[in-house]
Simulated scan of single mutants.
Amino acid sequence: MSRTIVITGAGAGIGAEAARRFARQGWIVCATDVNETALKALQGELGDRHAYKRMDVTDKDEVNHVLAAFARAHGGAFDVLLNNAGVAFIDRFEDLTLEQHELVLRVNVQGVLNCTYAAFPYLAAGRAAKVVNMCSRAAEYGVPSEASYSASKFFVRGFTEAMNIEWERHGIHVCDIMPNFVDTPMMAAAEGDIVDSIGINLTASDVAETILRAVDDRTRVHWRVDTRKNHIVIGVLNRTPSRVHRAVMKRLSGF
């Protein structure tokens, strides 16, 4: 019997690439996104074996409906939830609108809550069930010029760590993926000192490959995805006094 996965934000970027990878591995995918045109394009690639559903992760009623329908079609359960949908804006805090900050928190925080909560009964009935949350290296130290995004990923990291412990008793393994900047449509318009300093060195394929490995691993909580150089630099920074880490972050972000 084919394994089953729900992917949020599957219309583009990491979500679309993950959908392709899982489909090639024989999984049945429920690809969800707010962009129906993008889902149609994905359906043209992957075919009608999979489900393609318009879903706004901030709308809990819509989330409940879509997840329940997919579970019903597969014996009342599914095996994996990939909380991938996310929003980011990069600019000085006061130069973004309050509505932009609110959107980041609704999608990146409330969206993860909505989907994880709604998925519970179907994961509990699944096989080797898993929740994979898309986090970020921005959850290791607050990043200037993406304050709300960084804060939202701190939530995802803490939520993942807590749920990894809580849901162990249900046989559900919870982990997160923590990439640095990724070459995706979300980052296409991104600019600023922090982006220039770090660079966009990862592809959606790099992250999707890590997700595919993480799904079958039940030992790790955090999966960091980065260049070798950045792994070393950030690893050293995380062991330095906080004032040093702050000074480096300040310089990288142009503040």
Rank of each mutant, 00 (worst) to 15 (best):
T4C: 08
G75Q: 13
V107W: 01
V233C: 07
K40G: 14
A23N: 02
I198Y: 13
R251I: 06
L103W: 02
M187R: 06
D176E: 12
L96M: 08
E17D: 13
S136L: 00
G76L: 06
S136I: 04
R127N: 15
M187K: 00
V143Q: 07
R3Y: 07
V236C: 08
K229L: 15
A41N: 14
F70A: 11
H101M: 00
A124G: 05
D91C: 01
A247W: 11
V195C: 01
D95K: 06
D206A: 01
E209D: 11
W27C: 04
E209A: 09
A16M: 00
V109W: 01
N180R: 08
G13K: 05
K53Q: 14
T227N: 03
G126N: 04
N133V: 00
R3N: 06
A124M: 13
G76F: 12
R72A: 14
E166L: 02
V215R: 05
G254E: 04
L113I: 15
W167E: 07
A77N: 04
R106D: 09
G86K: 06
E36W: 03
D206R: 02
D206C: 09
Y117S: 12
A125T: 07
R246N: 12
R213I: 03
L123F: 07
A12Y: 05
F159S: 01
A23T: 14
M186Q: 10
V143W: 11
V131R: 05
A189S: 14
A138K: 02
E99Y: 00
T116A: 15
M163E: 10
G9C: 07
E146L: 15
N35H: 07
T240C: 15
R106N: 13
N64K: 14
R246A: 14
F155P: 04
Y122H: 12
A85L: 01
A147I: 14
V233S: 04
V215Q: 06
L98W: 11
R137T: 10
G199Q: 09
A10S: 09
G47D: 00
A18R: 00
M55E: 07
F255D: 10
I194S: 01
G86C: 07
W167G: 05
E94V: 00
A51I: 09
G126S: 15
A38L: 06
V221W: 09
S148T: 13
A129M: 03
V107N: 05
D196A: 13
L123A: 10
S205H: 08
L46V: 03
G47F: 09
M249H: 07
G44K: 06
A71L: 04
N164H: 15
A204E: 08
G235N: 14
K250T: 12
M249D: 00
P121D: 09
G111E: 09
M178R: 13
P121W: 13
Q110D: 12
V248A: 09
R169N: 05
C30N: 12
G158V: 06
A38V: 04
A188W: 02
V63H: 10
